[in-house]
Design a protein around this nucleic acid. Structure first.
Lengths: 355, 355
DNA sequence: CTGAAAGCGCTTACAG
DNA sequence: CTGAAAGCGCTTACAG
């Protein structure tokens, strides 16, 4: 008996020292069963006040923190939602992060972020983490539309919301997951219409990389709008390049130095617009006097440089995505939703000169 | 017997439909024990090739993905490392994210990001997630130095690396965790010396918010350097304000409109410097002709606007932090490390005019 | 109100 | 080479 008590003490000391005590350590120290410890700590069921105090004191003394893996295994709930994003440095996602985080926090979930670098492998890994039940739900902004990714998503019973930062190719296909679409096509379309309304007829286009769906859609928007305005765009006016500043810089340089240069440039995103802005400035050109410019994404720096752009409703997208995941967690059988957002034109100085 | 087989089939179908099969479902379908399934899937121990194939086929047919909670419970390893950051929108952290992610990925870990918004509560929550063993280790950039946070960290047996984006107050205090320091004091010091060397003697200072340790240290660096240069800074030249662009904008406006305005402004970070840049431009002032300007953080936009700044070694910090965590996971008893980084001056046009 | 027991899904000695 | 069994740390009916 004395020996047993000695053992108990020793165990307790060990637990405290390592800082890793389990629920049974607490139970032992408090002199109650583990079930009671669980009830007391989670405030469920009936626990006498004096017993609760016993448990709380023991837990405190041991520095007890429940091991979430144990709970997860039993309850099949992690309390975690994952947001998977392609890229750390693109400001366009910041609003989403905030929106998701605020929304899930209100419901007692924590948000974890995972960066995929827009690579298929990493996008698959994000889905995999969901399949392994590291988190309860996933909101992913993804670049690839590979069959492999689709298959992985379809094999996942847990809630997934997909957003491709464009009109989602998998929206309204009868798939059992939710999607969020941004009508970037319409955005670029509106940009061209705006430039045309300012009197421009020679409009250059920074198209971005040819490989990505997002930029394919934007290009279509450009073409359609040009046609609708009865304008013709020579092939040399369309610059396929990286979607970043450097791409925009190089393309802008080329366009601005043409003999018969355009009077306006429509960039398929803000990063390119900014690069283009730099290029024009480096060539001692003035915006909008020498050449007009529009972007898309409404980055902070576009506001600073006074570049016309498009707001993307990032915050709402994040909130809605989170809401959809949480709803599906509650009601898994509800009809999948396909949400649409339309970019909102923000006219600034860079396109405000009538010609 | 026939009934049993029926049951097995039914169970299998159920598992497949739900997409949630467990290791025992696989074992049943493959006709082997769960131990063998585990061995086959993880390529440990001895498994006959034909048996392995049986298992793999069964796993594939069921769309089996192991539940990580089960493994975690048994192995006490999650394979996850958490990076906790104060802020989504500050570009200064992007390099860290990359550095941490690359480093941990090489060792088979996944990196999860958690945003604290620089609030004590959320910083505590990040530590809590580590204590609950949601992840194996934590690298946190934090703002607060509350006793409560320190206590939480000290109670956590799992590896933590702390960075305050300044000379860490808890470095070299004999605490059992690793720290990373940035000598921002020295950074600002160097900025002032640089401005003085360009002939400036009337130097204004954008100090940031008074409450944060980070800015206290930077201010000290400013004062010390001024004294060393034999320069005097009137109180009105020191502007305490928000650490963001708006703060810089307002402070810049005030300083530039003074009767006896400074010939140079030293900003305690780039965001303020950028705001200041805008303010001066809005007042039709020229940089550096009318007033010189330096920042600190080396943001991309500072390069675009040609503002002198300081590189912060973010990438290396991320790599080193990750390395420290992984090392401590392997050798928990090693001496804690306290790393130091010194900002690197990047002179640009904004401070290149001799006076 | 409390305790004993089952069980979540894994891994890991151990016996054969 | 394979299987049976223990056990990781929880929660949750259930019996008392």
């Amino acid at each position: 008996m004395a020996e047993t008590r000695e053992n108990v003490k020793k165990e307790n000391r060990k637990a405290r020292r390592q800082g890793k005590s389990s629920i049974s350590d607490v139970a032992r120290l408090a002199g109650v069963s583990v079930g009671t410890v669980s009830n007391a700590l989670n405030s469920v069921g009936y626990v006498k006040d004096s017993t609760r105090k016993l448990v709380l004191d023991a837990a405190k003394e041991l520095g007890y923190v429940p091991n979430r893996a144990g709970r997860i295994l039993k309850t099949a709930k992690t309390g975690l939602i994952m947001l998977a994003l392609p890229d750390t440095s693109n400001e366009i996602y910041f609003g989403m992060i905030e929106g998701v985080q605020e929304t899930v926090k209100k419901q007692g979930y924590s948000m974890l972020l995972y960066y995929t670098n827009g690579k298929l492998n990493e996008e698959l890994q994000a889905v995999r983490l969901l399949q392994e039940r590291v988190v309860d739900g996933l909101f992913m902004v993804h670049f690839s539309y590979d069959q492999e990714l689709l298959d992985a998503v379809l094999q996942t019973p847990a809630p997934i919301v997909l957003c491709g930062m464009c009109n989602h190719l998998w929206a309204n296909q009868g798939y059992p997951f939710d999607t969020i679409s941004i009508d970037v096509q319409q955005g670029i379309h509106d940009a061209v219409k705006h430039l045309a309304s300012m009197g421009h007829s020679r409009i250059g286009y920074l198209a971005g990389p040819k490989g990505l769906e997002v930029y394919r859609q934007r290009y279509e928007g450009f073409q359609t709008a040009m046609e609708e305005c009865g304008l013709i765009c020579p092939e040399t006016y369309v610059q396929w390049n990286d979607y970043n500043e450097r791409g925009g810089y190089n393309s802008g340089r080329i366009l601005f130095q043409m003999q018969d240069r355009p009077t306006a440039i429509c960039a398929s995103n803000d990063q390119q617009a900014i690069g283009c802005w730099e290029a024009v400035h480096d060539l001692n050109g003035k915006i909008p006097e020498d050449i007009a410019l529009t972007g898309l994404d409404n980055l902070k720096i576009s506001k600073i440089l006074d570049i016309t752009s498009f707001g993307m409703h990032e915050d709402e997208m994040g909130e809605e995505a989170a809401r959809m995941i949480l709803a599906r967690l509650k009601y898994p059988a509800e009809e999948p939703q396909n949400l649409y957002f339309r970019p909102r034109l923000m006219v600034r100085k860079s396109s405000l000169e009538k010609i």
